[in-house]
Amino acid sequence: MKTINVTINGEAYEENVPERMLLVDFIRDHVGLTGTHVGCTYEGVCGACTVHLDNEAVKSCLMLAVQADGHEITTVEGLARDGLTPLQAAFRDKHALQCGYCTPGILMNMSEFLEKYPAPSDEEIRAALIGNLCRCTGYVHIVKAVRTAIETTKG
């Protein structure tokens, strides 16, 4: 067991964790933030477990919790502060989800992507979504929602 200090959504946690515990399991089972999902039995392919590590999108099943010691994490629960973000609202308005299982990971990936690239083309949005599998929507509405969020943010 090892003691780690991690900040999640602005809140500091000091926890004792087994060395082999994955970051996603720490977030879900230890901290109780179950918005971060496991979609592919920890194979690193579905992207549903995407969180921000020091403001960058990473897959939390491809990391041990101990590796996050001293770092700052944001999960999907940390996005909406004063109501939904423009990206979240656009996902709702444009029907960018059906079952919703993949949505937290896509929101975490796209929110960082749009911070970095505020004016991407549709092709760039699609390329940025490679690490997130959605088996419901066919991605058309997801791309539309991201596009809508860009326009809403531009004001």
């Binding site: 690193g44 992207g47 999108a57 897959k59 491809l62 990391m63 990936n109 490679i130 690490g131 997130n132």
Partner: peptide
């Protein structure tokens, strides 16, 4: 390589 998330690490 892989996807954005993988390239970030």
């Amino acid at each position: 390589v892989g996807d954005r998330q993988v390239r970030n690490r």
